[in-house]
Design a protein around this nucleic acid. Structure first.
Ligand code: MN
Ligand code: MN
Ligand code: ZN
Ligand code: ZN
Lengths: 138, 138
DNA sequence: AAATAAAACTGTAATGATTACAAGGGGGTG
DNA sequence: CACCCCCTTGTAATCATTACAGTTTTATTT
């Protein structure tokens, strides 16, 4: 399906800016607002960072994207897609998709009294590349 | 075990400030830096917010506490204790412990190439109190 | 095609969390 | 008492995010 249609079907007008932000988010790996902004402003020189914020908020509201849970100070975003876990490398701060492990599927009423909508599973540790570098430099 | 000993055995000098911060963190529910600061400065009028930051960083480094993964702008902290999941209410922004569900126990080498150290499982939705309020106000 | 209204986008300023850094202070050791 | 270490403090700088008002673009109506 075309990006244009993905946005339209969620009631989002498919402006050029929104298409580009959506496609960047889809292709990149859990980018921050600033990463999106820095990269797209080459193509769209008039782009404003506020627009990136606005657009991501819109995507999250319309359930096209989600903000990742992290413990560093800037948010990362991800396309809503097949469920998967995330691995947060504490050395390089990259976030990798882990499809071998999935967050448990929680029914909305699984926890007495609560209304559960979404589950995120995040692992923390050292990624393959950083492990290799550590070994080599010893 | 006394708080003093808990700190000492990790190689942390048990100063009054550190004891109080540790005990606040233990008793409170996933406080932010500012919450800890605001509450403790009644008892310790000379307390500096920098000290709260320093102390929490130290606790995390020494594996006494951990920073929670969230998608809002200020970090929340938790005592390292029995594994449990967290529920993040999108209405009131409170974080509740969920002991009925636990993050999967991941072996260090569970994912090919990675070194996994820790797993956090976070649910998102509406907490019981906010659900009741929503119903009442309709 | 001009007029109008709605929506999208921009730039700047304000806010808030976090970090950087340099200096103050207090207790133990010689 | 002098010295040192490390805990603590206060201020300034940095960075992410939000608030907001104004401008541009797009769609709709006349
Ligand atoms: Mn992902
Ligand atoms: Mn907890
Ligand atoms: Zn890495
Ligand atoms: Zn709530």
């Amino acid at each position: 399906m075309e990006t244009k249609d993905i946005l339209s079907r969620r009631g989002i007008a498919p402006s050029l800016t929104r298409l580009k932000i959506y496609e960047y988010l889809r292709a990149a790996s859990h980018p921050s607002v600033d990463e999106i902004y820095q990269n797209l402003k080459e193509e769209i020189p008039t782009l404003s960072k506020t627009t990136v914020y606005n657009t991501l908020h819109l995507f999250v509201e319309k359930d096209l994207a989600k903000a990742l849970f992290t413990d560093f100070s800037k948010n990362r975003y991800d396309i809503k897609d097949v469920p998967h876990a995330h691995f947060h490398c504490t050395e390089c701060d990259e976030i990798h998709d882990i499809h071998e492990i999935t967050p448990p599927r929680i029914a909305e009423d699984a926890i007495e009294g609560y209304l559960a909508k979404e589950a995120q599973l995040t692992l923390k540790g050292v990624c393959p590349r950083c492990r290799r570098q550590n070994t080599n430099s010893q």
